[in-house]
């Protein structure tokens, strides 16, 4: 698993990364009441707004962790945002991103580095 400073995780299968928000992020956000997912086929550059997760009190943007194209989204979390809160790093994944450049993965953190970041 790889992690970003913006509290996203990526799990790689071939050149497709499954992306979600970290357990640390969901703890900070509180119970989610709405998730807005991207459309399949959307091409993204690293840092683009890709999804929105909303709690009772605030909306938070999710950014594209790397360059790529959306190939699948998790409709289950759009129907029931509480899945993201209860199981953020498995069933609560948000979207699958076909990476434009596999080498860019090296710029992301491993789990130990991410844990050090969030304390």
């Amino acid at each position: 698993m790889k992690f970003t400073e913006d509290h996203e995780w990526l799990k790689l299968e071939g050149d497709v990364a499954t992306v979600g928000i970290t357990e640390h992020a969901t703890t900070q956000l509180g119970d989610l009441v709405f998730v807005q997912l991207p459309e399949i086929g959307t091409k993204l550059a690293k840092g683009d707004d890709v999804a929105v997760v909303e709690s009772v009190k605030a909306a938070s943007d999710v950014y594209a962790p790397l360059d790529g194209e959306i190939v699948e989204v998790n409709e289950a979390v759009a129907n029931d945002p509480s899945i993201v809160s209860s199981d953020p790093q498995n069933a609560g994944w948000l979207f699958k991103l076909k990476l434009a450049d596999m080498n860019a993965l090296e710029s992301l953190m491993d789990e130990a580095a991410y844990k050090a970041l969030v304390g």
């Binding site: 509290h7 992020a25 900070q28 938070s60 999710v62 950014y63």
Partner: peptide
């Protein structure tokens, strides 16, 4: 991701 929190 980043929360839109009020400024202080």
């Amino acid at each position: 991701m980043s929360a839109t929190t009020p400024t202080t």
